[in-house]
């Protein structure tokens, strides 16, 4: 994750800022330029609810080099209470406790490091409620 991209994605990764179509109310996360529902280009910025439920998950046991030493870890698709679905790591979890439909909450965590001297990159992860 290079610095400009990380900086550009801060509103979404830190604050869950989404785009709500002012014409039809469709919420897009991350925000879009054109509404996929009604093709409108008028959006307002809204912050998503940080609670939801786990739709599905998997356990990553062989990861890319950047995540070496952190395996195994869980990744899931979460549906937030306002209907938006997102993919995220599930932190602090005993894998035996994971069940589809469980309530989760998004918390602020470090996602990855850019090597030993690069940026710490932060964002959201889910934890079981």
């Amino acid at each position: 994750m290079i610095t400009p991209r990380y900086h550009r994605e801060i509103p979404q990764r830190y604050r869950l800022e989404a785009g709500k179509c002012q014409k039809c109310g469709e919420v897009s996360f991350p925000p879009r330029l054109v509404c996929p529902n009604c093709k409108s280009q008028e959006f307002e910025t809204v912050r998503l609810n940080d609670e939801g439920k786990l739709l599905t998950y998997t356990i990553i046991r062989v990861a890319s080099d950047k995540f070496f030493g952190t395996t195994p870890f869980a990744v899931g698709i979460v549906e937030l209470n306002d209907g938006v679905k997102l993919t995220t790591q599930i932190a602090d979890v005993d894998f035996d406790q994971l069940k589809i439909g469980q309530k989760v909450k998004l918390v602020f965590r470090k996602i990855q490091d850019e090597g030993k001297s690069g940026l710490h990159c932060y964002g959201y992860k889910a934890v079981l409620v």
């Binding site: 965590r109 470090k110 932060y122």
Partner: peptide, 16 residues
């Protein structure tokens, strides 16, 4: 701390 926790993440959760 978890591997993904540090002074910044702890501060953010406490601040929230």
């Amino acid at each position: 701390p978890g591997q993904d926790e540090d002074t910044i993440t702890i501060s953010v959760e406490a601040a929230r």
